[in-house]
Design a protein around this nucleic acid. Structure first.
Lengths: 334, 334
DNA sequence: CTGAAAGCGCTTACAG
DNA sequence: CTGAAAGCGCTTACAG
């Protein structure tokens, strides 16, 4: 853009009658400047409508004020509102703290990919990842000292700050709920088991069984991939192998919907003969018929937590992983 | 991050045996450099794993390599996958052209809001907006020479480059389809009529009626707001005022679903007694029962088109508004 | 508490 | 076709 003539430190300094160094101090919150002079600077800034040039500031200070949000192309960014929602939560928190969000939707390959290069090139002050199938890149970046936050639980134990939903607890309570409704034979359709979330939800399902003293047979544990189609396929198979099936916990709402579709087409009523619980509380959980009983996770809060964790790191504050609670939302399907 | 010692022009210049100016020329694609020397520079870059410092580059050149994607907080960024999907399309195209996407989710207020300041401060080379209720800010920025692209059709005629789906054509063909299926009385549930998309879809609906020589009564035109609830509310009202209603075109899939829910609860079968067509081809269109006949728009392509239009502008190339075609997807509901 | 000065790593007229 | 030099607008030791 044809840059309007914006004032610089030089003119602020002149009208305030101080040096540029002092202007810089005031604008960066250095407490040591004499209050009177600081006020003069602020007045000049106000009067001239001055806005700091962040690029120049970045070059001089080494801090860009930019945080990358990295989304793997592989993820179903398209069609799944999850990622967009998390990202908007992140963005809002960062913005409140004077930082901006650089969105990178790209294949997050190995250490020599474009994303890796960008992140290593010092053009961002930190990066927020969504949990990946591999922690290699993340561990590498961490070693280089780049502040990182992972949304989702990392695979390895490398102490990388992360935020996540209480997947285990949510799945546990969903399964418990099915049992409390009288279900004797509860299957699970897992998400992509390469993700930690899917594993944790499976663990919650198993824990509920363990506590009730009934271990589910292998064939009740179906490896899905979070897609509507996989929900349908596994429901079909379950119908054949377990005619007495009376409960299903699906690792997300979409698979739950797929399963319900199959059950009803096969003449099994939901929740009459088979109860179904999903996970997410996506829009479809409310709009479908029967409406879906599901485990709600607060996706915006997840993004905000990720942003906060990044801020804390940049400020050198202490921080712990953040695990957000879930809530079982009971509707018609179970 | 503790910046690793990255090479600078100084060391590239030295190992290639040329001046820094020459390094700059080669890296910026200046054709005038002698091929041999250019090659020496490229070799040095390769050998040293050099990556240009974009911040320094930005300060010196005035170009930041950053494009803002501005999303109004008001929009249902949360829960509606539309915005995230468009944005990922934008991001991909920009990335291929060496630009990065800065995501701003914030209240896009008047000329003195934070977003306005940021965009005016020269920290981005351009901005992509989603169509707003008002064009004021956009017109203002345009006057300042900031390259802009609008996703959606602008309200005013200010010649701002935009990309949009063929809302008129999509609605027209949806309505025609209902008529061709024998519907005699077709209502419309519009989107938020403050949006140009909602108006255009209404126009398409009206045009189809005009051509068939039957103008719909006022009470068949219901002002919705794109929400599931408004779909339900208007369907309820229609049921009371028009017992002989046999077709509904809803301006998005969510409202269509709301309407179907109400119709079926009232004992009206879809499509048996009332046919319903939606708009978007969102995920729910496929997963619902009955599955939804709808107007598909290619949301990723919309984002990519917006990105391309921005690139064209930055390169000083000619460009025209881009209107993407829609496709009527026939499923069970009509 | 404050200022002069060097510097961040590129880009770009300008002169040749 | 090429290089020396000034400059982009901040930040930050350093010296006082």
């Amino acid at each position: 853009m044809a840059p309007l003539l914006r004032p610089t430190y030089a003119v602020i300094a002149k009208t305030a009658g101080v040096s540029e160094a002092t202007v810089s101090r005031v604008l960066n919150g250095d407490e040591s400047v004499h209050p009177d002079r600081a006020q003069r600077v602020r007045d000049a800034v106000e009067e001239l409508g001055y806005k700091k040039n962040r690029v120049a500031s970045a070059l001089a200070s080494g801090r860009t004020g930019l945080i990358a949000v990295v989304i793997d192309d592989d993820l179903s960014v398209f069609s799944d509102p999850f990622w967009g929602t998390v990202t908007s939560g992140v963005s809002r928190v960062l913005q409140e703290n004077g930082l901006h969000t650089v969105l990178m939707v790209a294949p997050v390959g190995a250490l020599d990919g474009g994303v890796a290069h960008y992140l290593k090139s010092g053009e961002v002050d930190g990066a927020i990842f969504f949990v990946l199938h591999s922690d290699i890149l993340v561990n590498h970046l961490k070693k280089q000292g780049l502040p990182l936050v992972i949304t989702g639980t990392p695979h390895s134990n490398a102490d990388i700050p992360f935020v996540d939903t209480d997947n285990f607890g949510g799945a546990y309570s969903a399964t418990k709920h099915l049992m409390s409704q009288g279900c004797k034979k509860v299957a699970i359709i897992t998400g992509d088991i390469g993700t930690t979330a899917a594993k944790q939800r499976l663990d919650g399902y198993l824990q509920a069984h363990r506590e009730s003293g009934t271990l589910p047979s292998k064939s009740l544990i179906c490896e899905g991939d979070y897609s509507f189609e996989s929900g349908k396929a596994h429901a079909q198979k379950l119908l054949e192998t377990h005619p007495d099936l009376d409960g299903v916990f699906a690792s997300n709402d979409l698979m739950a919907m797929g399963a319900i579709t199959v059950f009803e087409n096969a003449g099994k009523s939901v929740p009459g003969q088979i109860r179904v619980v999903g996970f997410d509380d996506a829009l479809i959980a409310q709009t479908s018929r029967p409406s879906l009983t599901t485990v709600r996770q607060d996706v915006v809060a997840l993004g905000e937590a990720a942003g906060s964790l990044m801020i804390a790191q940049l400020n050198g504050q202490d921080f712990e992983p953040i695990i957000l609670p879930t809530e079982l939302v009971i509707r018609e399907s179970a």
